[in-house]
Amino acid sequence: MEHGDEHHRSTPLSHEKLAMWAFLGSECLLFGGLISTYMLYKNKLPEGTAISPGELFDIPFTSVTTFVLLMSSLTMVLSVSSITRGDLRRNRVWLLTTALLGAVFIGGQVYEFTAFYNEGAGFTTNLWSSAFFTLTGFHGVHVSIGIVMLMSLFIGNLTGRITKASAEKVEIIGLYWHFVDIVWIVIFTIVYLFPQ
């Protein structure tokens, strides 16, 4: 038999990037299921419930944290662009900024959860509250994992493990980060903006 090239690869994409795309496809169904469950239960408040989602939500506050999260996508793009150019210093700055913006979003979520809980809507209170905390909580966990990965990249950059050659790693984690942001746009619209 003839001998093929040892380093043959069937598509121009790297394994890692393909894997991340496949994983994100899978995540679509996870969030799809969560959002469907929320939609099923969002109007099922028991008779005489004292608290309604419409009264709990502080739309201006959540809009601000949403804006912060969306801006983190911009800084993520900037960090990918800087590492592609080999600008490690700027890459550090933008990675840290992205992680911080994500942390601000999480902080806002923690504040919001606490406020809701204090107003009497805990995880176990009713159908709506279980579905709400589960959906937004799952998203919050995804953002937090993203922050951990961004900080790992940041530390990798400081210790010299992340260089221009590893630009694709930053890009792949960026894919994850943008995906999580897009999911939040859907969640924000459906949970907060749709009339209750």
Binding site: S26, L29, G33, L34, F123, T134
Partner: peptide, 22 residues
């Protein structure tokens, strides 16, 4: 398919362990 069953199992687990209402 796996994410869908994962989600369902999470909801069941939340119900059983932490008293969610799904």
């Amino acid at each position: 398919a796996i994410p869908v069953i994962t989600l369902a199992l999470f909801l069941l687990m939340f119900d059983r362990l932490w008293g969610a209402n799904f």
